[in-house]
């Protein structure tokens, strides 16, 4: 006599029913890793260099301003460039996790890599929004200045 099959036969959840990424996709990811590391380093150098330039601009005020004001200035500079630093951190995390996922065939690391990429995009939104605001302000001042000629 034929046995009854369980009712949940054939009903599977991820990852069993998920599609394999495939060699092409894994190949693209592999090529992306070195550029993720380069971009991360570039972000850190960019943030560090820009913060240093801004801080040297305040150097002339060092003697005249109080300690608390100077501390506030340093803090504000660090606050301005911290999203760029975070951008670098998340891109580096994306590259590192992607490398682990591909070398160890680690599904969890792959999902973590894309979580880092998502955070990169969130930090990128903050940076882009801030830069657009700054540029809008600059354009407004420039146009105002030349309209008086």
């Amino acid at each position: 006599m034929e046995e009854n099959a369980p009712l949940d036969t054939g009903m599977t959840n991820a990852p069993e029913d998920a599609r394999p990424a495939g060699e092409w996709l894994e190949g693209y990811w592999r090529k992306t890793i070195p550029w993720a590391f380069r971009t991360a380093w570039m972000c850190w150098v960019f943030a560090g260099f820009s913060a240093l330039i801004s801080l040297t601009g305040y150097q002339s005020m060092m003697g005249s301003e109080g300690g608390l004001t100077m501390l506030g200035m340093i803090f504000s500079v660090l606050l301005i460039y911290s999203p760029v630093f975070a951008l670098g951190y998340f891109i580096h995390g994306f590259g590192r996790q992607l490398q682990t996922a591909l070398t160890m065939s680690d599904q969890g690391a792959l999902e973590n890599a894309f979580t880092h990429l998502y955070r990169t995009m969130l930090a990128g939104t903050l940076v882009a929004f801030f830069w657009v605001l700054l540029m809008l302000n600059h354009t407004y001042i420039t146009l105002n200045f030349y309209s008086n000629f």
Partner: peptide
């Protein structure tokens, strides 16, 4: 093999 799981697809949508 690495899989295009539901979690990964959700993340890709957000990205």
């Amino acid at each position: 093999a690495l899989l295009l799981s539901d979690v990964l697809m959700d993340r890709a949508r957000q990205i």
